[in-house]
Amino acid sequence: RRPMNAFMVWAKDERKRLAQQNPDLHNAELSKMLGKSWKALTLAEKRPFVEEAERLRVQHMQDHPNYK
């Protein structure tokens, strides 16, 4: 499986939080909310998630050198 990108790293915990706050929302609505929230973040706010995604990408390359 591919490593998570920055959005997916961020959305993993954010989706849980949103789902707890909005138990009646379907996954499609949660995804739309997550997309809008991600776009609203500044580059500085996204940076930790971008860095974690890069760390995961490098780790994935080391763990699976033949993955394409």
Rank of each mutant, 00 (worst) to 15 (best):
R57G: 13
P23N: 01
Q59V: 09
M8A: 13
D63H: 05
F7T: 03
N5D: 15
K32E: 04
Q59E: 06
P48T: 04
A28F: 10
M61Q: 15
S31W: 14
V58F: 08
R17I: 04
H60G: 14
D63E: 13
M33D: 05
Q21G: 07
E54M: 03
W10P: 03
M61I: 11
N66T: 11
S31M: 15
V50K: 13
E14M: 05
N27W: 09
L41R: 01
E14D: 01
A19M: 13
A6K: 01
F7E: 08
R2A: 04
P3Q: 09
P48M: 10
R57V: 07
Q59N: 07
Q59P: 07
H26L: 12
N66E: 14
K36E: 10
L25A: 13
M4K: 08
N22K: 12
H60T: 15
N27L: 11
A53I: 00
H64I: 14
L43E: 14
K12Y: 06
E14V: 01
R57Q: 12
S37V: 09
A19C: 05
A44S: 11
Q62D: 15
P65I: 11
A40M: 11
D63W: 06
R55W: 03
L30E: 11
E45R: 01
P65E: 14
A40S: 11
K12I: 08
W10I: 00
Q21S: 12
T42I: 01
P3S: 12
R15A: 08
Q21A: 14
L56T: 05
R17H: 06
L25E: 02
T42Q: 01
K32S: 10
A28S: 14
M33H: 06
Y67N: 15
L56I: 08
D24Y: 09
P65R: 14
D63G: 10
N27C: 03
Q21I: 12
L30A: 00
N27G: 12
R55D: 04
L56F: 06
S37D: 08
L41G: 00
L41Q: 00
A40N: 13
R57I: 04
T42P: 14
M33R: 11
Q62K: 10
N66C: 12
K68S: 07
P23Q: 07
G35A: 13
L25G: 05
N5A: 05
A44V: 11
R55A: 06
L41M: 15
W38T: 02
R15I: 07
N5M: 02
K32A: 12
A19K: 07
M61K: 14
L18N: 00
G35D: 15
E52Q: 07
E54Y: 07
S37Q: 14
D24T: 13
L34E: 00
R17G: 03
V58G: 15
L56Q: 11
F49S: 03
G35Y: 14
V9A: 06
D24V: 05
H64A: 14
V50G: 03
K36I: 05
V9D: 05
Q62M: 09
W38N: 02
P23L: 03
A19Y: 10
P65L: 12
R57T: 10
D13N: 08
R15W: 05
T42M: 03
L25P: 01
A6E: 07
E29F: 00
D24W: 10
L34M: 10
T42D: 01
A28D: 10
F7C: 03
E54S: 07
V50C: 11
L56S: 05
W38C: 03
N27V: 08
K46A: 00
A19I: 08
M4F: 07
T42E: 05
T42H: 01
R2I: 11
A44Y: 15
P3M: 13
M61C: 13
N66V: 11
N66I: 00
H64V: 14
R15F: 05
H26K: 15
P3R: 11
W10F: 07
L34C: 08
E45P: 00
F7I: 03
R47V: 09
L34W: 00
N22D: 06
H26A: 13
P23E: 03
A28T: 11
Y67T: 15
V58P: 06
N22F: 09
L43G: 06
H64M: 13
M61G: 12
R47D: 03
F7D: 09
M33L: 07
A53W: 01
E29R: 04
W10R: 02
Q21P: 01
K39Q: 07
A19R: 07
P23C: 05
S31V: 09
F7Q: 05
R55P: 02
K12P: 00
W38K: 03
A53V: 03
P3W: 02
P65K: 15
E14R: 01
M8F: 00
M33T: 06
T42K: 04
Q21L: 11
V50I: 10
M33Y: 04
R1W: 09
E54R: 07
R55C: 02
M4C: 00
H64L: 13
Y67F: 05
R1S: 09
N22C: 07
R1G: 14
M8E: 15
V58T: 12
K36L: 09
K39T: 03
Q59L: 12
N5Y: 01
E29A: 08
K39D: 08
R15G: 07
R15K: 12
P48W: 05
E45C: 05
V50S: 08
L43P: 15
Q21E: 13
K12Q: 12
V9S: 04
L34F: 00
R17A: 05
H60E: 15
